[in-house]
Simulated assay, not measured.
Amino acid sequence: MVKLKTLIFDLDGTLAETERDGHRVAFNRAFAEVGVNWHWDVALYGKLLAITGGKERIRYYLDLYQQDFRPPIALDKFIAELHQTKTRYYVELLEEQGIPLRPGVLRLFNLAREQGLQLAIATTTTPENVMALLRTSIGSHALDWFDCIAAGDVVRAKKPAPDIYDYCLQKLQREPAQCLAFEDSANGVRAAVDAGIKVVVTVNDYTREEDFTGAALVLDHLGEPGQPCRVLSGDLDDFEYVDIALLQRLHGENTA
């Protein structure tokens, strides 16, 4: 039987509820700074989340809602600089007020480390955003907990393409059957499944109605003692929250 060796986590929406009150706010601040009269409200941002990657999301918005927009510089350069401005605002927002980790995340990190499991991150957000969230929600020491942080533009094709997971597996020198992934979106599930990795989903307000076909387990969150998680798809057996024993049981269907 192939043993579980590594837990690979998506970031935004999975580790913390960063999309609505983090990235969306930072985008709007960036729009104001560069002088464009755009505003992404909660509902519109939910639609834009169909596209992974911040630069890709800006381009998608322009194609759908701002066809007449003429940037003051070359479009690719404009998008890249706008996204850099947004990243600056996002990091500032985290440093000013922080965004807490979702239930069960820190507990599971600590359990994994205690039991000798590797931790990794596979995300479409920028490395700066990853570092900022870990630093502000846990502490700078948490940056050393992860044997691979695969983020941003290290691969050309972003989720739902499996490339970011393939990259992570290569860096970790792991086989897909040795890993479990944690995601919050249908795009993330497709990416992990196409890389051959089993997936646990924790939904959020933006993703709870998405199609998670292929996921091994779909929950509202990872849960805590006294704060049990709710099963949306799959089987928790007798567990009230996600711990290493449950993950090993889920993973046990992988055989050599």
Rank of each mutant, 00 (worst) to 15 (best):
R135K: 15
Q118V: 05
Y61S: 15
E96C: 14
C179S: 04
A161Q: 08
V200D: 08
F182N: 01
F9Q: 00
D184A: 09
T126D: 09
P103G: 09
D68Q: 15
N129D: 04
S185N: 09
W145A: 09
P127G: 12
G35M: 11
Q170G: 00
R174A: 14
R88I: 11
T6N: 04
T52A: 14
Q227G: 04
T85V: 15
A120D: 07
T18Y: 11
E96Q: 15
V36S: 02
V42T: 08
V155F: 14
G46W: 01
N254K: 01
A80R: 13
Y167R: 02
T136Q: 12
G46M: 03
A181Q: 04
S233V: 00
C148M: 02
L93V: 09
R20S: 12
L119T: 10
G188E: 03
I138F: 04
Y90D: 06
N129R: 08
R20G: 08
V193N: 07
F212C: 07
T255N: 07
K159I: 04
L117H: 14
K171M: 08
K3C: 04
A122S: 15
I244H: 06
I121A: 01
G188N: 08
R208C: 09
E224D: 09
D220N: 12
R107M: 12
V91H: 07
R70T: 14
D153Y: 05
D166F: 13
Y61R: 10
V105R: 13
N37W: 03
V25I: 13
A43L: 07
G214F: 05
V218G: 07
